[in-house]
Design a protein around this nucleic acid. Structure first.
Lengths: 167, 167
DNA sequence: CACAAAATCACCTTTACGGGTGACGACACG
DNA sequence: CGTGTCGTCACCCGTAAAGGTGATTTTGTG
């Protein structure tokens, strides 16, 4: 039914707004479908079509809702990889040099994108993987390049490696 | 020639399975609702109830799906295969894997350019450093990408590292 | 609540890349 | 000698990337 999971605290207003929005969408959809239903009722398989439509629409809506709800929570985690050659804490999988991160003023999101760039993904692919628009990725990477002093993504990767930001 | 490219296989099957499961659930639900519908049809507001039921069920299902999908994707992961850097100190700086070079049919010049690409240089800079025209560099890199199966230079760098062609 | 930082998205411009095709000289090999 | 490989260069075209500006929304903190 209604989304049970929500942020721990301090975002109740938003959750309420979401629920209201959700209910509104549901009402509108049901209304629309109620209207269309009367046209389709003369056809044989109207109910199947109707049910399928409602199902698909609400499934999509639910997926979207689940995604947006989830987005707040988890998602940081980049990394993995073996090999930590030079100086560094070198603990477990990999740990970005936080000192350098703060020095350069690189945000978590930008670091994440740097990792995906280093993995050889295009902006579009990164956008798809992070569920954001390509423009957003471009903005992030642009600022990232700025902070790193890079002019190209390959250079950003190189500099990021040297700075110990990525494995 | 289909070179490396192995990482995403493990999770794709699960995604397909999820989708199939989803479709199956949908079919079962629709069937069940079709059956129940015949009982409710005598009642006045059966369609509303029916629609509401379908909507609610599929919304919940969608939310669940969104959450699970999100969880899976949120781990980002950037796999980078285990790779023993240099087994022997005999090759002090670095030595490209000649076997793989021959396998892929990569010429010395192309390897050279791959190295410069990995260093973050643009085509123009590479051209300047090698005293050749930019077009030449583009030709080389184009053929290089072809042999590596890369579509972007960042990807070529990634694949080249995995193949042990560059440090 | 207000504020700042971060994240998101849109639009526009210019440049860099990637793909395709064709061509030419050098050089080795059978 | 012909053939094949390699390196070199040119041109065109379409897309991707990078740079800039502005705006909105989320979110964490005071």
């Amino acid at each position: 039914m209604t989304p049970a999971a929500k942020a721990p605290h301090s975002s109740r207003r938003r959750a309420i707004r979401d629920i209201l929005l959700y209910g509104l969408c549901g009402g509108v959809l049901i209304t629309v479908l109620k209207l269309t239903e009367y046209r389709f009722l003369v056809v044989e398989h109207s109910l199947e079509i109707y049910g399928g439509l409602v199902a698909a629409l609400f499934a999509g809506l639910g997926i979207w809702l689940g995604l947006t709800l989830r987005r707040k929570k988890a998602q940081v985690v980049i990394t993995q990889v073996v090999r930590q050659p030079q100086a560094g804490p070198s603990s477990g999988p990999f740990m970005a040099d936080e000192k350098r991160l703060n020095e350069l003023g690189i945000t978590p999101r930008e670091l994440e994108i740097l990792g995906l760039i280093a993995a050889g993904l295009s902006n579009r692919e990164i956008a798809g993987r992070l569920f954001v628009s390509e423009n957003t990725v471009k903005t992030h990477s642009s600022r990232l390049f700025d902070k790193l002093g890079a002019r190209r993504r390959t250079q950003a990767v190189q500099l990021g490696k040297e700075a110990g930001l990525i494995p």
